[in-house]
Design a protein around this nucleic acid. Structure first.
Lengths: 194, 194
DNA sequence: GCGCAAACCTAGGACTGTTAGGTTGCAGCT
DNA sequence: AGCTGCAACCTAACAGTCCTAGGTTTGCGC
């Protein structure tokens, strides 16, 4: 019988595609094996367990996402950069819902440490804010606020949390306007508290 | 044999407690039955299926949460109200992580329509913003931004998303300062777009 | 063409979700 | 006290999922 030609990378990518199709919480070892026309047990040569599989999908998605964002913000500054970052973020979340959901799971700190995804994400995010002239610790606070807002907005949008008729796209643009104003009027931390 | 005295409400409450203990995604029919010293099948007299169980936990948690928030913001306005709302929100998320996680699941719109939780949530949230003098559609945009930010912040905090040493509590307070400034400088929608 | 590592399989155990249908305890009525 | 009915609870069974242990095959490098 012809072999499926499985490989760790191929399995993870298929899992990511499956997540976009049926939702991240529904990517199961069995379903994945079915896609390849292979028995469940065969996947365990390439992936330790479901936990491991999900972590890998998360890292794949996180890498793809920050790459797209990085391209979008390249050569931009100030509000231009903010909007480009935010729109690339949201576009990814809407286009690849399963992969985006994967990026939200808790990941083992040991894995985080040896992956480049988080470093790149931090670099791009801090870089985007460069034009606003913030310095630590305000910078960290601002990054956290922005991440929270993007994360929260896309999460609520994806889960149908916005019931009112007002257009979600319009609200998003308004939110970006507001965040831009906010970054320009950022209440500076006089106390330099740690 | 002495009966456990199960009831739909009691089952749901136990499920919520279990969620706070072991995480919402780990509340399972079997585990719940074990807690009551009862067979799995017995629970199906009180709850349609896991989906139904989770939805009920979500509604319970959502109700508890908005009640606590409502008490916190009562009699306050402006920044006072904003801070009270936000702190009550975050406190609930931190104290009852399982219940809070439950509030984030997607809920059948039919259920949403006939539950009072969402109406109350909207009332309290819009009420909190009254002092800032916003009017529609800016009001809806601001509500969405705030909800997203709180939701996103607590989600990231709970999943360990804040790696840097800067205190999470301090960043939170700074974020509230910033949001207050933002609401006072809200970029008005001149076009009255829908 | 031989060997070996990787790819894939069979078999099976443990847990979870769910249904169908049976039994039993308890409240209230007579 | 005895009956009755309903709700609480049970047994039995099946399907799906995760995972392990150990066996077989395929294809690539020599």
């Amino acid at each position: 019988m012809a072999r499926a030609g499985l490989t760790a990378a191929r399995v993870v990518e298929a899992a990511a595609d499956l997540a976009d199709d049926v939702g991240f919480e529904n990517v199961t070892v069995s379903a994945l094996a079915r896609q390849f026309g292979v028995k469940d047990a065969s996947l365990y040569s390439h992936v330790k367990n479901v936990q491991d599989l999900r972590t890998r999908v998360a890292l794949l998605a996180g890498g793809e996402m920050i790459d797209r964002i990085g391209v979008a913000v390249a050569g931009r500054a100030g509000k231009d950069a903010l909007v480009a970052f935010a729109n690339a973020y949201r576009a990814y979340a809407l286009e690849r819902p399963g992969r985006y959901a994967a990026t939200q799971i808790r990941i083992d700190p040991a894995v985080v440490a040896e992956s480049s995804v988080f470093r790149r994400t931090a670099e791009v995010t801090y870089g985007m804010l460069r034009g606003y002239g913030l310095s630590e610790p305000d910078l960290t606070d601002a990054v956290r606020l922005l991440r929270s807002t993007f994360h929260g907005y896309c999460g609520l949008e994806a889960s149908g949390g916005f019931g009112a008729p007002r257009g979600v796209q319009t609200s998003w643009e308004r939110a970006l306007d507001a965040l831009h104003v906010l970054l320009e009027h950022w209440p500076r931390d006089e106390t330099k508290a740690a």
